[in-house]
Amino acid sequence: MNANYMYSLIAVIILLLLAYVGVAGMHLEVLFGVIIPYAAIAIFIGGFIYKVVDWAKSPVPFPITTTAGQQASLPMVSPALIDNPKNKTGVVIRMLLDILLFRSLFRNTRFEVRDTNKFSYELEKWLWLFALIFHYAFLTVVVRHLRFFTEPVLLPVQLLEKLDSFFQVGLPVLYLSGVALLAASIYLFLRRVFIPQMRYISLPADYFPLFLIMGIAGSGLLMRYFAKVDIVSAKELTMGLVTLRPTIPEGIGAIFYVHLFLVCVLLAYFPFSKLMHLGGIFFSPTRNMPGNNREVRHANPWNYPVKIHTYEDYEDEFREKMIEAGLPVEKMPEPKENLEEGKKE
């Protein structure tokens, strides 16, 4: 038992029960089906913009690009133009590969003591593999869900449905992405529990989103394959939301509201949690800066114009006093000033 994940698990279970009791027991369909979803979307979009603007205002004082290859230098040394890009094109390619293929996770290694007293670095690809499955399954599920939010349903969404149900298992036909999403999030959770180093650094903020996503995927799968809900009414509700004419159709089934409520919690939680890496990846200085520190001077944006006082200015200011005190000056005062002195006498 570990307090960090027990707290997160209990939190998700409470949320789940809240929606279930709220709808099945207290008939708060309007709250869970209209008010909370609108609030969640507003918090999601508003919070996202707030975070991004906040980050964009923070200066990056040093070029801290990570180098996974030779920096461009002399012509005889061949540079790694993607792993250590020297210009914007290289940065864009590195960024795309990282976002689409998780290239930096692919480099993940595991440190091990092998035999006796021998250290070794092992390639560790499981995290990369499951992270990739997790994110693409999530994306597929979300895009497929557009069938609830568009009428007529767009062709690309229908093609994705065909592709996702390629193996035509059972009826309603099994969507691979839904199962993959649940399986991958379970892997990501077990990894934190069973690897001691991972357990040590894992906090409730790491477990909570995983449980939340497991809850969403679990309730979704339950609703599609086991405890079925009325999909036509469900779509009436979702279309009501997005056409700004909210309605609460009869008899959708409480589990739909549980699913929807967990999604709303995820949306509202998103901008203020680690999930913001969706926007944050674009602001990672280690990824978005070219490794050209030898070619280009990176000025610290904190630098402001310093007030300087040169010797010439100094002498101009104190020349008379310096002469009076018998100090040497570089520029002798002009004769006009002598005349003035003469007048005084």
Binding site: I45, I49, V53, F149, M239, T243, F282
Partner: peptide, 25 residues
């Protein structure tokens, strides 16, 4: 530009359905 793209994507169902209605069949 990034924020604009984000808002367009996130609010897709809302602007896509402007002026449409989708009564149940």
């Amino acid at each position: 530009a990034g924020i604009v793209i984000f808002v367009i994507l996130a609010a897709f169902p809302f602007w896509f359905n402007v002026g449409r209605s989708a009564p149940a069949p």
